[in-house]
Design a protein around this nucleic acid. Sequence first.
DNA 1: GGGCGCTCGTGAGACGATTCACGCCATGAC
DNA 2: GTCATGGCGTGAATCGTCTCACGAGCGCCC
Lengths: 339, 339
Amino acid sequence: MTPQRRRASVVDVAKRAGVAVGTVSNVLNRPEVVAPATKERVLAAIEELGFVRNGRARELRAGRISTVGAVVLDIRNPFFTDVARGIEDRLERDDYTLMLASSDDDPDRERKYLRLFEEHGVHGLLVVPSSADLAHLTAIQARGLRVVVLDAPSSLEGLSSVAVDDIAGGALAAAHLLDRGHERMVFLNGSHSIRQCAGRRAGVDRAVLARGMDPAGVVEEISLRSLDAAGGDLATSRLLDAGGPPSAVFCVNDLVAVGVQRALRRAGGTELLRRVAVVGYDDIEVAAELAVPLTSVRQPTHEMGWAAADLLLEPVDSERHVVFQPELVVRASSAAGPA
Amino acid sequence: MTPQRRRASVVDVAKRAGVAVGTVSNVLNRPEVVAPATKERVLAAIEELGFVRNGRARELRAGRISTVGAVVLDIRNPFFTDVARGIEDRLERDDYTLMLASSDDDPDRERKYLRLFEEHGVHGLLVVPSSADLAHLTAIQARGLRVVVLDAPSSLEGLSSVAVDDIAGGALAAAHLLDRGHERMVFLNGSHSIRQCAGRRAGVDRAVLARGMDPAGVVEEISLRSLDAAGGDLATSRLLDAGGPPSAVFCVNDLVAVGVQRALRRAGGTELLRRVAVVGYDDIEVAAELAVPLTSVRQPTHEMGWAAADLLLEPVDSERHVVFQPELVVRASSAAGPA
DNA sequence: GGGCGCTCGTGAGACGATTCACGCCATGAC
DNA sequence: GTCATGGCGTGAATCGTCTCACGAGCGCCC
């Protein structure tokens, strides 16, 4: 309890209890081999000195590692925190801990965190890659770490993965808007170097082609720099300034859709809001509670996190892939027909 | 690049480059003292072996620690992720890293994570305490770690803190409802062992007393087990079953308020929703975009996180307290008058 | 040519916990 | 009385990195 210059170590405890360091270690790790009286003395000394094990030394010696690192794209997006929660729940079962970091879609930040985790000696890494190039991940795996890629379905070069079928998701959304009669739509997407973005676009194209139409004539894709409400708001404002509202907008995630709705309402009130069909992606918790409840593509977030952590902890050494199917949740925001 | 049984160590690198281990270390840490030719050889060996520093050994030896641990109440609440972002931004400036964990309002989980972080040897800890008892935190501080308490203003027993004035926040919300003429209100709160909850209740009482009324007659407080949309939904459903809708509801956070709105709408459509005045807390990003935009108490989240990290990194050793003032953001949800 | 200073590189020791081969002692069987 | 057995405890060696006191080699100047 008294402030100390230096943390107490096993040596200090051993001295205080009048035993050897090995005995202290035994009390901590295999208490059953220590006689009760001795154990008592050691525990008392630990208490008095406020001794706390030094995990770094412990892991250095033992090689044991019970931490897992995860790098997601944006920690403020509920989609990723839900996935993280799924990861955590699975890890807890095996007494592992999660270190979470957010790359902000920035490959450099991603690399920085991956390196940090690797130096730190994590058991494995869960990564939502921010670019299409996975060479740095295969290199890490080659060094003996387990790597599981989340949300990046294709061309995995030997890495295990958990993903939702983004092509199917994009197709669901686009088909829904086409069904409503929209023959032109705006797609607010992220950079195609983000795999989910490229995949959803491919799905959109597939749905359009399936109806014998030409994607180039139907889909106007706008690439956003920031995939959040601010990004959606800004892009929509520009559209309105440029030539009036589109009749249908598909957004690469729900936060962007929230921004779209915000800009529409600001420009033309609820009336304008109801005239534009908006479809989001992720089905975040508040999607149903918005001014105009949002039609969205739902992904099984918790299950994805769980499955990813599962792949990481499993002793299996082979490459494995888990693909979940997305689901369209139809609400009022997509009710509007074409202009 | 080739898979290896064991991670390459400095010894391996030294052998390969034909130098001493100290030289390898110098290349990594003080490259300017190594002759160019030697440095070249060492770097080549590092590349060939895929050598990655072992951070555990490094920190063990150096005592140097560049990690900070944070334990927040609920990682899915945007309030906490915004605070976390503030922390991260401040830490990044000094090349520190954040390990984030979520206690789920559970003191046992909180203790578990704190212990883990302490064993891990973090530089310091940022904690949003889940109970009123801070003895375990002072004990940690006594052992030489820096501890900053977030969002817990009173009786700090020597711990530095960053907080928003919860009493003022509770008072703002209650005064607003009283101004609208509501003489009865429901307060959906969490356990009073959570300090923010106790503080906001105190603020509510203060506002009521300031008008010469009796809190017991005005405020019906309901204690929720889970402070999220599900919790608010459930409590509201029960209220409706028991005796019809209240005229005013103050929620301890916005997620709870979202749940309240959901239950109201389910029971009586938008019409019922507009008849009940609802005030939330935190002003999360989507608060303005809900079906009925939510009146809420805004807290400067990013600044709080930044300030907390600042206290942790500063070399100052004295106890410091930073208190931010909350702000009421009035929107449509609180427009309804008394029944 | 002896002394001095400088640049580079060396390698043993330290950080703190764990492990394991070993020794001590008491007990009990023959 | 001897020997085997088993329960307890010991402490040196180990993990991988960094530090630091030291020394080798070289050039330069008086």
